[in-house]
């Protein structure tokens, strides 16, 4: 398993560097679709099938389309700017902090991790008996954490309405101009 993941990670880094280097924003938006597909592939390899579903639909589908919608309101070429070092420092500090945080977490697939000791067995035992639904993740999302999901859905719908409103108003403005 590991060599495939390493290779996919290598592809991921290659795409990320390429996107950062490209001045053609349309090409960069297209390549971000590949980035999402690679992420989704990695999620599948880690058995997070449901997350992979979402990543493929949202990352490769919806967000590419939103990026394109945004591009139709701006220009296709990025302005060339002098290299600035402050953002790079910020990125490295933030990334380092996140990596430090990960060090505290239990190892991937560790059977003694808290999540495998308390919640997961409960969900797995309860799902079939309580809901009669074959997919445990579905049961968790829609029943055990139903209100949580409701809140998330509300956030996403609001965001979608906001973005669509922004794009639509921009288009009308553009169309109205002589």
């Amino acid at each position: 398993m590991a060599p495939i993941e390493l290779l996919l990670f290598a592809f991921l880094i290659a795409v990320a560097l390429l996107v950062a280097r490209l001045r053609d924003l349309l090409a960069a938006a297209l390549l971000l679709g590949i980035f999402s597909l690679l992420c989704a592939g990695l999620f599948v390899l880690n058995d997070a099938v449901d997350v992979a579903f979402t990543e493929a639909a949202v990352g490769a589908g919806v967000s590419t389309i939103l990026l394109l919608g945004t591009l139709s309101l701006t220009r296709r070429e990025e302005k060339s700017q002098p290299t600035r070092w402050a953002p790079l420092v910020v990125v490295f500090v933030t990334g380092g902090a996140l990596a430090l945080g990960i060090l505290d977490m239990p190892a991937y697939g560790d059977p003694t991790a808290p999540i495998h000791q308390h919640l997961a067995p409960d969900y797995i035992a309860g799902t079939a008996a309580e809901f009669g639904i074959p997919n445990v993740v579905t049961a968790i999302l829609t029943s055990y954490r139903g209100f949580d999901t409701l809140g998330e859905t509300a956030v996403i719908v609001t965001a979608a309405i906001g973005i669509l409103a922004l794009l639509a108003s921009g288009r009308r403005w553009k169309g109205g101009a002589p």
């Binding site: 597909l37 589908g61 590419t64 389309i65």
Partner: peptide
């Protein structure tokens, strides 16, 4: 399916 739809949108 997603690849097809995304392609057409692009």
């Amino acid at each position: 399916l997603i690849n097809f739809v995304a392609m057409i949108a692009l």
